[in-house]
Design a protein around this nucleic acid. Structure first.
Lengths: 208, 208, 208, 208
DNA sequence: CATGAATGAGATTTCATTCAT
DNA sequence: CATGAATGAAATCTCATTCAT
């Protein structure tokens, strides 16, 4: 009797997660508009009405999913940035963790991308300021690490925001390739490439 | 009498372009799903039925539009790459032209992005192999320029495809920022930043 | 032990009345269709399922409510009619009691109206012959009072049923005004107006 | 060619009227909530989508219908009031016209009632200020006729608004009976009864 | 060719009702 | 008995597409 409410709650929470898992898969594959509630319900093995007991409407389901996704990834990335080592080592670790993380959770990664990087390009995107804020937190920490590296003379002095955007653009480019087609490339190579291009000169000394 | 068919053809071509111009604006703003044929027709000042005289269905209109967009941009980019100068100068010009081009034609740029870079992320994207092919041509030429630069010892030797993806990722990141929010950043700064990060070392000499 | 079943019964009856009170409020405000069982359950502070322990379905709850409402009002009205005084005095008291009663219990009055007077106009109405019967009782007694008044030469001789309908229509018209908008009009004025119009000539003597 | 647009317009207008006729019948029978768009479409012999080409949504269809109905009836009633004769004759004609009109168009009459008299009782009602305004016009004119009658000493002096409400309540009561059950009563009897009750004293001289 | 009214499949959302706990 | 999560039928509304004029 006393344990009853807990079990009920846990069951409810499990159902919620099942719905979100089904939704994640489908939204990642088909996008917001082309994924129907009926389809999500079917994959989650619930009736349509049940989805509405957990989420006010389709947007709310999507929003909860995205927020969940972005927060989960953001936490991992922030942890990587805040570990030991000098600034360059920490940025390198960031890129490595990002590569492994995204490769391991491809549907989640898709959603993360469309809602952070591609947020301005996509119509569904920009749904919510809250989502942008979570990603901004990652960018802010990246920026502070970069700033520290510059102060210590480890990193070329320039606008740190711009440098951060560059690092993101560079690493995302490779992650996207990994996500799209399952190339032979794997996370390790990806991280090495970013490091090679970003931290060392591409133009050979004296070429310019 | 003999000139008649030509005039008719030209008129038809003009109508086609008017429809595509309306569609470009709306698709860029609202995305594929959220843009209705009725809305395009209204903006183009034609009846819905007329749109179907020019394009088999909505997808075909979208496809034609994207192909048109991508080809137009690709032509400009290829021209920039094929001009005079050594490989590094040509790559730099590529970045400059790209920045100016995209900033000048924002709706077109949006479509270009969602269909080239974001092609694997977005549901509407990957509509057609033909589109990918056009963009591949740009990547191929970029790759050959990079390869030449490596042979001449101007560019650090590494997998040229990877280097090209990196250059694209880096430059796109900044262009996206320009497109999303009308930052104070302008095309010149953008190109300089890419050059600074890409061609010169970000990690200060001896730091690693 | 022996008193237990009684306590249970009383408890059950109390719960039943709590549900009906919640339902009365909501049905009166929003009508049958726009009032949901979930909403009633919430207001009554019971679970949805519990409502179904007391009433077979939504219609049954509504029906019970209406019957309760109509009977309650009918009893009061009949009592007023059966008091002392000659027929005209009794009819006047009927109008006074009706006015005060309805003004005091507005939600109940709304339901009474939609189910008696408006029964033929409203789709939810006419749910049940039983309800009509209760109201018919009031009309029958009114008719007998009117008939007696006619026999005694107090009331103009005409079809008594018609006269009753007229009295109802006249008094209801004012009550409706009171229910709709909280006018400055109050029960006393209402009753006086009905009496003035109904029992005395509106057309001035000799005008016709 | 020149007549083309006119024919199209007429056809469109005809279709609009067909939809409204189907809707009138069904709304009058089942009320707003219990009448589905699919049902209206079927009866009107159009596809569901077609209804939405003529009316933004269900409410708009209902509103248009009601406005149409109320205006049509109001016009007839106003005409009756504004004809020749002294004030009492004009009020009597009003009652006669009202009786005949409502008996002839029962579905329309139902809608008229639920939206004018019963407007405050019904949840769907009070949809629109505009509708109330049309009915107010009738009440205003009634009031001015009554006022004139009082000035001329034809009608008992009292609050004219109250008298008008009384006349409406009285006549509506009988009309409702006619609408509900097809009694043996007919329009002529109805009008005579209203006149008898309203204009002459029900309480016999000296009874009070 | 151009038109735009008509179509109807399909999407979202609500809610009365059931039933395992 | 009480509970409230789950159900799924049904309603509203949208929009790509067709076709008679």
């Amino acid at each position: 009797m006393t344990a009853e409410p807990k079990r009920k709650d846990r069951e409810r929470e499990r159902h919620r997660r099942e719905i979100m898992a089904a939704a994640r898969e489908l939204f990642a594959r088909g996008g917001y508009e082309r994924t129907s509630m009926a389809c999500i319900a079917e994959r989650a093995e619930f009736a349509v009405g049940t989805l509405y007991r957990f989420f006010k409407d389709k947007r709310a389901l999507y929003r909860a999913l995205i927020l969940d996704t972005v927060e989960e990834f953001a936490d991992e990335l922030v942890t990587a940035l805040q570990g030991p080592g000098n600034e360059i080592e920490r940025l390198e670790r960031y890129v490595e963790v990002k590569a492994r993380l995204f490769v391991r959770h491809i549907p989640t990664a898709r959603l993360y991308f469309t809602q952070t990087v591609g947020a301005g390009l996509l119509p569904t995107a920009g749904m919510d300021q809250e989502i942008r804020t979570v990603y901004q937190r990652v960018l802010d920490i990246l920026e502070s690490v970069v700033g520290d590296g510059m102060s210590k003379g480890l990193i070329l002095k320039m606008n740190p925001r711009m440098l951060v955007l560059g690092l993101e653009g560079l690493s995302n480019a490779y992650v996207e390739v990994l996500i799209e087609r399952r190339d032979d490339m794997e996370a390790g190579v990806l991280a090495d490439t970013v490091k090679a291009i970003f931290f060392r000169p591409v133009a050979v000394e004296g070429a310019r």
